[in-house]
């Protein structure tokens, strides 16, 4: 893959915007289409594109597999941790109204934001890790 000049230049131009779009989809999910699942897949797709053009070795310098193996359970823990936090604050499991004592609707927004962040982390890192294992098997 040394010689594909057009692919290399275009992908280098595209990848920052792909990641920016993923962040937009993530944080605008309350008001427009989007959320953790979509953003996670878009992040993973951006890194997979990078790996397809520049090779598995290069991408694993940016995101080592050991980091991904930490991130995969981390997302689930963030999600469940929000539930435990609402327990400690005196509500039911995943009852976001407890997260803000003044205005329940702020609590809802905060809870949804945190939970979507957990989904983003798990989905993106799992998809990328699955791609790593398939691509690394061939050699």
């Amino acid at each position: 893959m040394r010689s594909h000049l057009i692919l290399r230049v275009v992908s280098k131009l595209l990848i920052p915007f792909l990641l920016l779009f993923a962040l937009y989809v993530q944080f605008h999910g309350d008001f427009g289409p989007g959320g953790g699942f979509q953003a996670g897949v878009i992040v993973a797709a951006a890194f997979v594109l990078y790996a397809l053009i520049f090779g598995l070795k290069t991408i694993q310098k940016v995101i080592p597999p050991a980091l991904l193996e930490v991130l995969v359970p981390m997302g689930v823990l963030i999600y469940a941790g929000v539930g435990v936090a609402t327990w400690i604050l005196g509500g039911n499991f995943l009852d976001y109204n407890m997260l803000d004592s003044h205005d329940p609707s702020h609590g809802q927004h905060l809870g949804i934001l945190l939970v979507e962040a957990g989904v983003l982390v798990t989905v993106a890192s799992t998809m990328l890790l699955i791609f790593y294992t398939f691509a690394g098997r061939g050699r």
Binding site: G29, D30, F31, G36, F93, H109, G111, I112, V115
Partner: peptide, 17 residues
Amino acid sequence: TTVPNVVTSVLASYRGY
């Protein structure tokens, strides 16, 4: 919930489990 996107509010809040 004051979330305009109903899909997000159902996904993350009403059906969080």
